[in-house]
Nucleic acid binder design. Sequence first.
DNA 1: TAAAAAATTAGACACTGTTCAATTTCACCG
DNA 2: CGGTGAAATTGAACAGTGTCTAATTTTTTA
Lengths: 200, 200
Amino acid sequence: MGRRSDHRREELEALIVAAGEQVMAEAGYARFSAREVAKRIGYSVGTIMHVFGNVDGLVVAINARTFGLWAGSLEASLAQAAGAERIRALVRGYFAFAEANRNRWSAIYEHRLPPDMPMPEPLAIARARLTGIIAAEIAAVLPTEPARDAARLAHSLIATVHGHCSFALAGSFAIMGESDALGLAQSRVAEALRAHGADL
Amino acid sequence: MGRRSDHRREELEALIVAAGEQVMAEAGYARFSAREVAKRIGYSVGTIMHVFGNVDGLVVAINARTFGLWAGSLEASLAQAAGAERIRALVRGYFAFAEANRNRWSAIYEHRLPPDMPMPEPLAIARARLTGIIAAEIAAVLPTEPARDAARLAHSLIATVHGHCSFALAGSFAIMGESDALGLAQSRVAEALRAHGADL
DNA sequence: TAAAAAATTAGACACTGTTCAATTTCACCG
DNA sequence: CGGTGAAATTGAACAGTGTCTAATTTTTTA
């Protein structure tokens, strides 16, 4: 039974999210349970509801964390690549994170905000960091492109890679007899960038 | 209270799926309920379980129907287009169906088969019909491409459009400040096809 | 018509998220 | 130091969910 003195508010929040990350990784979004999270940290469900409002709030916090880990993972991938190889490293890193964190990655896209819930700022920020990393690399290989156009292309390429990654993890590609989702994504990205004047 | 004489097996199955389609369209996958379906047709939940094994079986049947409607919708789009415009009509039709059937379209990708459930044949067939329609059009604009390569490109372009469509409906593009998801998808498809020698 | 088989149901079960009154804990202040 | 008020935490209740099973009803078969 959790005691107030055991954890300050922020500590408790972090404790819940950490346990939530575990449950999400193990069970996936479909079987995620706030009660299971409560059980693991020795608090009651009510406390979680009190801290996060409802289960959606907790899932949002978990997904924001996932975005953060993902962004860090991409930065690590980039740190080892130079020149035109950076784009390829980015796509590879995108896939690698998703495959290494299937349930958590999927949860980002499986969870839908309740209609009455406005976009939580922390989630938007974490997401923006990720897209920012990618957009910067796209802009770098398109030096002659107006910034707005480069941003649009970046967003479109994120959607492109997402589609491939999503099909790969969900088994859609497997049904079609495709095994090299990453290779296909790399090709599409390269083609689009070349069409916009990139030298790859 | 449903009586056996009221509906033969196939009729009952169709009755359940039809009601299921309604519930899915109204409530979406997250709030889909087999009990609600049972209530609407005047049978008990047990009957649905008896007919479809479990709720996943019913969702699979609903999603297979959705694939069928979607395929028919694409064929209708194609019937009005000629030449290079056919590809654009296909992408437009892809988006149009998803937007006009948000919850049902999303349910296709939100539902995950239980690990112990093998891919149901009817679902695979319905899906193959859809991808077949698209693959044929891609192959038609790539006359010099080996069949296998054209198929790979088709699958990749489906994933590309899916990514854009998914981001559009989930609001991801909106967060990034992008409003023309369809236009972006059209551009990426055209670029990839041109890179493979298509004359668009 | 009687017996066997199949369909259907009601009810129980173990879950879920949410809510709320009651309790416990804490910080503050006289 | 003791008391008071506010905040945190809980347990219990509630309305849902999918799944399962024993009992019942209906149909088919013999």
